[in-house]
Design a protein around this nucleic acid. Structure first.
Lengths: 127, 127
DNA sequence: TTGACACTACGAAGTCTTTCGTATAGCTTG
DNA sequence: CAAGCTATACGAAAGACTTCGTAGTGTCAA
């Protein structure tokens, strides 16, 4: 039996993944420079090592420096995190989560339109 | 300067809060019995003590047993957690979170209708 | 009264997360 | 070549989370 699911990233790991999703393949130095939350160079290195073990990123040893790239996609990760929150805090109801999200921070008009489009796609007959 | 915000509940604390939201004021024994995730009695007691310190719950010493009740509401907690996820994983965009939520686990037709109503309330003119 | 229970308080262990400091080795340029 | 810069690897510390075990105290029935 092999593990089929990659573990949830921790908050710090998510920060690093976010950078990698934006930059694409990058070195420790590049990730370190791009991180909003200031943290030591070796800290970033350590995380990338840990994340490599966890299969959250993959590394290529191009010469002396290593280049890291995300294994998990942003969408997959978002899906997993939303799903987790839905189960843990909303009894599995996406509707309640959606409504909390929208009333917490309303989307822009264009975004609202896009959401509406999505709703229309989900069930044609809504009256 | 006084702390104005109650801290985020940890996963285990959220489980206990969920029970309290459902039961209303309850004793350790009642919470323990109602918890889905099986855990020792003293573990529950310990959490309730910690949560009392954190002001997540309030306790009334009615005789020898203590009765606990939630201080934070379910809605407030949900809002906080959604907001946190939105910031951490969705760059602050509620729209993207909403869309992930709906495509991860579609809502029922009635729920969809309810969401639509909410959308209509948010901006009257959506074309 | 005394033994069996019930309840709270406390301390502590084990794991996970985050953060660095230090060690080591390669490369580069006066 | 030597000094210094750059990279990785490793270990360890500090704090948060979770989970109990044990101790102490009160209550109640036989």
């Amino acid at each position: 039996m092999t593990k089929t699911t990659t573990p949830q990233p921790t908050p710090a790991e998510l920060g690093i993944l976010t950078v990698l999703w934006r930059l694409g393949p990058a070195t420790v130095r590049e990730v370190h420079a791009a991180l909003e939350h200031p943290v030591g160079y070796t800290t970033v290195l350590k995380f990338l090592q840990i994340m490599t073990e966890k299969k959250l990123v993959r590394r290529t040893e191009s010469g002396r420096t290593h280049v890291y790239q995300p294994v998990v996609t942003e969408e997959t990760t978002q899906r997993r995190m939303v799903s987790d929150l839905m189960d843990r805090a909303f009894g599995g109801s996406s509707a309640r989560l959606v409504m909390q999200a929208l009333s917490t921070k309303p989307a822009s008009p264009e975004e609202l339109r896009e959401i509406r489009r999505l709703l229309d796609g989900l069930n044609g007959d809504s009256r």
